[in-house]
């Protein structure tokens, strides 16, 4: 088990840095950072001076190594645009995103799992059809539209929650619902089909022959098997929420990492973009790793190989 964890960690780190090197290179081929910093109309001498000053004339790998060296010491560089350390920028914005992601994941779990389970218990019943229609609508409705609708309904017509911002917990209710709803279809369907497969298996027949029924059969016999794929999907969904809730953050004017990323891209703020990508990739990689470890804990066949 220990070697399994170590090897998986090593792979994860390798993946993270390969991706970040790739984006680093792409960025440097696509734009001229010196020009960006100097401004569109700056004279050539100024651009050259900035290029030298920031070291953009050095080979790409050296620059990347330099930047990476800083990263390892907690220094992600200084934003060209906001003129402050990237670390501080990220610290300012991360809280909102993490809170939003975790709460919306909770929303997803609380809606999708019970729906999926009840659908699986009575396939083709009205519960099943109800769950399916929810899944289809949630899949079809664009996130920004749903966001606008709940704002109109719960913030304008019935002003229960604030329209936008991220100051109090009340600000997080609507965006969490919207972001959470976006993951419901995938998770619910997986719960339903996974549980249906498990319930049709021979070992559940054995469990029923042993006298298990009702919630005991589901919780003590079937659920653990059905959870395996759900854990993997939840990890990916959480990754999306941590890294890519740009739309939701924009609709609700929340100052999260997603908006920071968008703005820094528009302003070609390479150090910020760079650092965010590294963080997003690391998040994804660590989440999949966590999912694999949880699954290994749930399933002895993975654990022992």
């Amino acid at each position: 088990m220990m070697t399994y964890v170590l090897r998986r960690c090593l792979m994860a780190i390798l993946v993270a840095f390969t991706v970040s090197l790739g984006t680093y290179a792409l960025f440097h081929f696509a734009t001229d950072p010196a020009q960006t910093i100097a401004g569109e109309d700056a004279p050539q001498e100024m651009v050259d001076e900035i290029r030298e000053q920031f070291g953009f004339d050095r080979p790409l790998l050296v620059q990347y190594g330099d930047w990476l060296g800083g990263v390892f010491q907690g220094d992600f560089g200084t934003s060209y645009f906001w003129k402050q350390p990237v670390v501080e920028l990220i610290k300012e914005h991360a809280g909102v995103t993490i809170t939003l992601a975790l709460v919306s994941l909770l929303v997803t779990i609380l809606i999708a799992l019970p729906l999926g389970i009840s659908a699986a218990l009575k396939p083709n019943s009205w519960v099943d059809r109800f769950a399916l229609s929810i899944a289809v609508s949630a899949q079809a409705i664009p996130n920004f539209w749903l966001g606008l609708m709940v704002i109109i309904l719960f913030a304008v017509t019935f002003p229960i929650f604030p329209v936008s911002g991220d100051a109090t917990w009340r600000h997080f209710v609507l965006p969490s619902l919207v972001l959470g709803a976006s993951s419901v279809p995938a998770v619910m369907r997986l719960t339903r089909t996974g549980l249906l497969d498990v319930l049709a298996s021979d070992y559940i027949r054995t469990a029923r022959a042993k006298g298990f029924m009702g919630y005991r059969l589901i919780l003590q016999q079937a659920m653990r098997n059905a959870l395996l794929p759900i854990v993997s999907v939840l990890a990916v969904q959480l990754g999306h929420k941590l890294g890519g809730s740009v739309v939701t953050e924009s609709v609700f004017s929340m100052n999260g990492l997603g908006r920071l990323a968008v703005e820094s891209i528009f302003n070609s703020d390479i150090p910020t973009v760079q650092s965010l990508i590294l963080i997003f990739v690391l998040t994804f990689v660590l989440l999949t790793l966590a999912a694999d470890l949880i699954n290994a804990w749930l399933d002895p066949r993975i654990r022992m190989g």
């Binding site: 298996s201 021979d202 070992y203 054995t206 042993k210 006298g211 298990f212 653990r224 098997n225």
Partner: peptide, 28 residues
Amino acid sequence: EKELASKVRGQRISMIFQEPMTSLNPVY
């Protein structure tokens, strides 16, 4: 069904199935 599960199945009447490879729960 409830009484069947709690009083009969696995207690007074037991079953052994054909497929030993799939009839045991793999995660427990």
